[in-house]
Computed example of a mutant assay.
Amino acid sequence: MQSNDNVKFEQRGRIALLTLNRPEKLNAINYAMADRLLALFDKIEADGAIRAVILTGAGERAFSAGGDIHEFSRSIRNGADEAVRDFCRRGQALTARLETFPKPVITAVNGIAYWGGCEITEAAHLAVASEQAVFAKPEINIGIPPTFGGTQRLPRLAGRKRALELLLTGEPFSPDRAVELGLVNSMVAHADLLPAAMDLANRINCHSPLATSRILAAVTRGINTTIDEGLLIEREQFARMCATQDVHEGLEAWIERRIPTYAER
């Protein structure tokens, strides 16, 4: 395990486990934590031994309560240009990195997921929530819209009217509701949260990592285009796979009724 003051990194087989590590601050994301996460994602992308990422929070209370209000309030006092540069662009860069990452990113939401914590969950490819999780979009309570992409991703996940109700009231909602809205894939008992996230990652990791990356790219790029443009993206991703050894191995393994070698790498 590697760690610093704000993020822990642990490799468990082919899975990277990242833990937001400011439990005394409800894992609020300060600028240093956001920068550390971006650096870790760069490292993980370059490591061929890692095929999936799980992101969770330290402690028993929170996944993440969002941005560090005390820190970004100083940026706001210094003017819009500084606030946009230091807070908004940094947060949007983080969620965009998660959304477009070429390996599956799974959030294991162990408690409070407010503000940016909810937006990270929106951006991640997949999410599992503890029965003790609670979500909210409370930015309106301090007079701002969400700044890490929440005004864009939540309506795409939940639909415009359901998203606007959450964005305009700031009211918390349960993990059951998060499942219904499409924000998370499933809710599990608190003690089962990390095992459930690991199981999901392992069920993905038994397949070709190249095909996984191509599917992620096709869905992420295609979801906000027309169907014709999306189909073109799909064809491009298929064509990129055709020249790879994984396709030939997958076809041969299927015909020979055996496990493909990439499942064992």
Rank of each mutant, 00 (worst) to 15 (best):
M1Q: 07
S3E: 13
N4Y: 13
N4A: 11
N4M: 13
R12T: 07
I15E: 04
L18V: 13
L20T: 06
N21S: 15
R22E: 06
P23W: 09
K25F: 07
K25G: 01
A28R: 14
N30D: 15
Y31S: 15
A32G: 13
R36A: 12
R36W: 02
A39P: 02
A39H: 07
A39Q: 13
L40H: 08
K43S: 10
I44R: 10
I44C: 07
G48Y: 03
A49Q: 10
A49F: 03
I50N: 02
A52S: 15
R61T: 11
R61G: 05
F63L: 04
F63Y: 11
A65Q: 02
G66D: 04
D68C: 08
H70K: 04
E71V: 06
S73F: 03
S73M: 10
G79H: 06
D81R: 12
A83C: 03
D86C: 09
F87V: 13
G91C: 08
L94E: 09
L94A: 07
T95R: 05
L98I: 01
T107F: 09
A108K: 10
A108V: 14
N110V: 14
A113S: 10
Y114F: 15
Y114S: 12
G116A: 15
G116F: 07
G117C: 02
C118H: 00
E119W: 03
I120F: 06
I120G: 01
E122F: 15
A124S: 15
A127L: 01
A127W: 03
A129L: 12
S130F: 08
Q132R: 14
A136R: 00
E139G: 09
I140N: 14
I140K: 15
I142P: 10
I142D: 14
G143Y: 06
I144T: 04
P145E: 10
T147N: 09
T147V: 11
G149E: 06
G150Q: 00
Q152S: 08
R153M: 04
P155C: 06
A158R: 00
G159N: 09
E165S: 11
E165G: 09
T169F: 07
G170F: 05
F173S: 02
S174A: 10
P175L: 03
D176I: 05
V179W: 02
E180L: 07
L181G: 01
L183S: 08
V184K: 04
M187Y: 06
H190Q: 13
A191R: 12
A191V: 05
A191T: 05
D192K: 07
L193T: 13
P195H: 08
A196T: 13
D199R: 13
D199Q: 14
A201R: 05
A201H: 07
S208D: 08
S208P: 01
L210N: 07
A211Q: 12
T212Y: 08
S213L: 04
A217F: 10
N224C: 06
T225G: 10
T225K: 15
T226G: 15
G230M: 09
I233F: 08
I233V: 13
E236L: 15
E236M: 14
Q237Y: 04
A239H: 09
C242P: 00
A243Y: 09
V247D: 01
V247K: 00
H248A: 15
E249F: 01
G250S: 00
L251M: 11
W254N: 01
I259C: 02
P260E: 03
P260N: 05
P260R: 05
P260L: 02
P260I: 03
T261I: 01
Y262R: 00
